[in-house]
Design a protein around this nucleic acid. Structure first.
Lengths: 208, 208
DNA sequence: GTCTATAAGAAGATAGAC
DNA sequence: GTCTATCTTCTTATAGAC
């Protein structure tokens, strides 16, 4: 990895742990193994490193969203799959979503950084909301809507059903961000949540 | 309000908006209407102001918890009330919890400050988790457990049922913290959530 | 592109008069 | 308890040699 990339990477790690203001250019340089002034040959300021991280994040998110099914880009293509989904498959979907958000290194550090910096800049708050609230609700709402259409699930209000599916996942995620030692507990709770969700909303095939 | 108290109050407001590191002693002094050095006659350092806020918060929380039913202190005393609860009363409970968390000025500012500072200090992360995840789940779990005992609600797993009740409230709260303009939307979603929750878990009296 | 030296300025905190 | 003046330290950023 080239130096410019490594600066951004180490900066993201530090920003996600201590927040932008508590990280000094010297800290970043140390990690990269160079002296602070050398940083300025790659970025014109500390803020420019931060901005580059945001841009890189947007790039990655768009790139990976399709593959990982986090926004609505290719939901209709997956329609057939979700028409005959089982409880176990629903658990796999929930687990994949949760573990991707939790373990993807870039995503995890970026989410923590956004959490810290979100009130500092309205644009970051908006990005946080889009990334971790609105987009997941929108995409999952589409998937669950397909399952309702197919009779796999039953619900009068798909939006609320989606909230019932995703809100616990979101809450467990914020829990693990704060205390990674609770990941095992969170995974057990997640599975129990999805099983109960499926039981509550099971349609014509009982989710089997 | 005496000056010492006003310093703490204005500091909390600023910390909740910009984070500890982005607030300068001079900013706090300005709001209070004194000069920065005068602050040091009341607190020995900027950090001491922050620490005083945390202490004050702990004091308030203990004091108000009983009255507002956020921890388990007096749950058993309320047992009778919850044995004959209706859907409308369940909505009132959810609304009160949500609006208290959202509108109580001290609570709101403190939660935003904790959100920003939580990764800076493990103790703050623990406090956040206790305050906004574990304690609410514990107390509401007790209440919902009483309703299950009374047959008002039906559930094999009360813990998960409680997660289904509270996680959407938590998520809507984090949404409103980031974008207060979405409060109306959140309140409508909250009511729809609780109605659907009640329908899903309704027991022997259908929640009526 | 990396270094050393250093400028420029910000921010926390103290001294001492009133 | 509040003020003005000031100290000290820290941090970003630049200059210029290699």
């Amino acid at each position: 990895m080239d130096t410019k990339q490594r600066i951004m990477d180490e900066a993201l790690t530090l920003f996600s742990e201590k927040g932008y203001a508590n990280v000094f250019v010297e800290n970043i340089a140390e990690r990269v193994g160079i002296k602070a002034p050398s940083i300025y040959k790659h970025y014109k300021s500390k803020q420019a490193i931060f901005d580059a991280i945001i841009e890189e994040m947007n790039r990655r998110f768009l790139e990976e969203a399709g593959a990982l099914q986090i926004n609505g880009a290719d939901a209709s293509a997956d329609a057939e799959i979700y028409k005959n989904i089982s409880e176990e498959q629903l658990i796999v979907i929930g687990n994949n979503l949760f573990l991707y958000f939790l373990h993807d290194d870039y995503t995890r550090r970026f989410r923590k950084m956004l959490t810290i910096e979100q009130f500092h800049d309205k644009k970051l708050a908006d990005l946080y909301m889009k990334q971790y609230v609105d987009d997941p609700l929108s995409y999952q709402g589409m998937l669950l809507g397909l399952m309702v259409s197919a009779g796999v699930l039953l619900a009068e209000n798909v939006e609320i059903m989606t909230l019932h599916f995703y809100a616990p996942i979101y809450m467990l995620l914020t829990m693990c961000d704060r205390d990674p030692e609770r990941e095992d507990e969170a995974l057990k709770t997640l599975e129990a949540h999805i099983r109960q969700f499926n039981r509550l909303y099971a349609g014509n095939n009982g989710g089997k």
